[in-house]
Design a protein around this nucleic acid. Sequence first.
DNA 1: CGTTTAATTGAAAGCAGTCAAACTATGTGG
DNA 2: CCACATAGTTTGACTGCTTTCAATTAAACG
Lengths: 250, 250
Amino acid sequence: MSSQEQPLSLLLRQLEIYARLPEEDRQLVLDLPHRLRRLDAGSYLVREGDCPTHCTVLVSGFAFRQKVTGHGARQILALCIPGDAVDLQNMFLDVSDHSVQLLTQCTVADVPRDVMQDVVLKRPAIGTAIIELTLVDSSILREWVVNIGRRDARARIAHILCEFAVRLESRGLADDKGFELPMTQEQLADATGLTSVHVNRVLKSLEADGLISRKRRNIHYDDWRALQDAGDFSRRYLHISDQDMIRQTY
Amino acid sequence: MSSQEQPLSLLLRQLEIYARLPEEDRQLVLDLPHRLRRLDAGSYLVREGDCPTHCTVLVSGFAFRQKVTGHGARQILALCIPGDAVDLQNMFLDVSDHSVQLLTQCTVADVPRDVMQDVVLKRPAIGTAIIELTLVDSSILREWVVNIGRRDARARIAHILCEFAVRLESRGLADDKGFELPMTQEQLADATGLTSVHVNRVLKSLEADGLISRKRRNIHYDDWRALQDAGDFSRRYLHISDQDMIRQTY
DNA sequence: CGTTTAATTGAAAGCAGTCAAACTATGTGG
DNA sequence: CCACATAGTTTGACTGCTTTCAATTAAACG
């Protein structure tokens, strides 16, 4: 596994989607001092209110950002996939305004906060790339607001499936025409502002209509075009250029 | 008006909420080269797909970010108030993923994109402050996702009223215990994922319950505590420290 | 295997949406 | 100054998407 020899290689790959780095900077990213940890599903990487001293990078496995309302309802705010730097936000803001929890067992790399801050401020190419990374995160968040605020249940589910597929693909992590969705229907519900019962019904309906097929949590697109249409999905907001998509199916 | 003599003074004020700047940097911000424009309500500052060459700062007046779905539904993503730098996102990403439209007549200052980029990368104190600004924008966006995804209509409206009040207050723009809400009920609906009809009913209900009173678009809090409770609102996510709030009513 | 967690299904209820009309405020031009 | 136009607000009746509640089935896990 290249991610074992080079734990930060997927982070580098993500950075280079937004800006080519000089060889020197590439090496600097790969050589960032870090400590590797192996954590179980359900572990928290950050909790709302924390003042983290490290910037954690997902080496393998999946996670999500979340907030909980005063009435105990949970809203999932983003999905984190391998190569994501989980708390860039916390590098510059002292107190975390949301939690990050693991969806699956994960390997993570903790980079000291001050090292990361230094690199951002002193290496313009890396700094620019990291700023762009956080801006793309914002763009994704904006699309989530649109998804939850202005699309019906069917479109919301179709949309999030499309988004996840394209993001995985851009990092070379997607199977051919399908992927394992690492979340329960309840988590999917919390990500889309629905209930798990209704998510179930929508998934079955998408399946009945021949857009997807499912075996456990494995999603297969039977009709990618139709799924995109159903989800009103266009990958423009992900700011991924064509040449960064390995296959052109998406 | 100080904002006429010093068009960028509110931007500076906002930056200093997140980091004290050395005197030299303070002056540099105020002296950023810019061109002032006066624009009517409804004008676009940016359109989805644009490649802006300037970073626009709101000197006076209000605006909002928006996206439109394939079915023509509009979702408002954020409210911009005087002192906000409207397209920090576009300083580092080439194509805008959303539009910005004026809510009221506005005075705006256009700062050339490369000047802004330079300042961010070469003045660590300003760069840090601007990064923090965009991170706070993200935090607000996350709270919007929670608001729309997991709160009922009454709480959504109460919450957005609270948010707007506190943000105005932090910039010294709030009246005592009230403010003019510069948007129609339809726009309020597009910001909260509701319909204008339902927004109207909720506003009337909040008024009937003695939480607010209204004269045209002027909102007065009759019971700030109760409004916060109704909206499940806590200003933690705005990352504004206590000393930056002029009054402690909030 | 028994236990637990997740997925599935059905029936009933409710919050918010849709449709349509009336009302209010504001502005315009004759 | 008034008739008319326009934009936004308000109200009522009805509909429907999604939730809620509850029970069953299936899968995962020691």
